Amino acid sequence: MKITLPKIGNLCGVLAPVLWAAAIIYGGSLRPEYSHYSQYISELGERGSSTEFIMRYGAFVPTGLMHIAFAAFLSTAFKDSPVAKFAALLIAVNGIARIGAGTFPCEVGCSLPRLMLSQKLHSLSAGVGFFALIGASLLWGILIRRYHSLRGLSAYSIVSGCLALVFLALMSWSAELRMGTGLYERLSTGLLSLWMFVFAARLWWLKAYSVSPGLY
């Protein structure tokens, strides 16, 4: 199979969720005191931590760039649809927000957003990223009903977005006591990451002919 820029963009959509999950698991394994149940993912990249570099430059920044590349691919693949271009833009916004979250680390504990500008920018980036990707999964769920070969992913995309929003709300609700906060965050980002992986993988194996003649 000839490798082209669109294919690279498509592949980025497949690999970004894998890299994201691997970095979280690996980073957590390096810190025995770290709790995936109660602590934020961002705490793996908090300022001064032993896993700061791994998470900032091995997870947040590279997956952000990969999301932007996947969004560019989608914008080209569905170039005849203005709605698809907007849905792709939301994925790109998530990518930019991830880069922002990696560029500006949170302080220890990631719980005092008013202390430092870096903390404020990290929290803002994280929030924008989550909502952008949730919006993307919902919008793509509606949009792909038009395409016979992708129609089966419609309900899955919408349900993934809705559940991710619910778990994000639970994460916020539990933040003060840190009761399951990390778990809720992982469920939210996990659902969205799995959705992107499934969507990108489906487009890859379709070879695009049934979606758009100009996809590749």
Rank of each mutant, 00 (worst) to 15 (best):
G190P: 02
W140M: 05
R114W: 14
L143I: 14
A132D: 03
L168C: 13
T103E: 13
S193F: 01
L115K: 15
I99D: 01
S157P: 02
Y209V: 15
K2E: 15
S123C: 08
R114G: 13
Q119W: 05
S35H: 13
L203K: 01
E46G: 09
R47N: 12
Q119Y: 10
A88S: 15
G127R: 13
L150T: 04
Y57L: 08
I142C: 14
I54H: 05
E176I: 13
Q39Y: 10
T4W: 07
T189P: 00
K7Y: 04
R98S: 12
H67Q: 13
F104E: 01
C162K: 12
R178K: 15
G135Q: 08
H67K: 10
G180T: 09
F86E: 02
S212R: 05
T189F: 08
L215E: 02
Q39L: 09
G102S: 11
Y147C: 07
I25V: 14
E176W: 13
G102V: 08
R56D: 06
R186I: 09
S75P: 09
A23P: 08
G64L: 01
E52H: 01
P213S: 15
I24S: 00
V198F: 00
Q39P: 01
I96V: 15
L15V: 08
S149T: 12
Y156Q: 04
G180V: 03
M179Y: 09
G141V: 04
Y37C: 11
L117H: 12
R145E: 14
A84R: 03
L15T: 03
A21D: 05
S42Y: 11
S212C: 12
A164G: 03
E185K: 07
G64D: 02
R202Y: 09
G180F: 08
G190H: 02
A200T: 02
L150P: 00
T189A: 08
L215Y: 07
Y37D: 13
A87H: 00
H148R: 15
I99Y: 04
R98A: 10
Y26F: 15
P105F: 01
S174G: 10
V93Y: 00
F86D: 00
V159A: 07
L153T: 04
A97K: 07
G28C: 10
L89V: 14
L139G: 04
P62C: 12
S29D: 01
G152K: 12
G64F: 02
V211I: 14
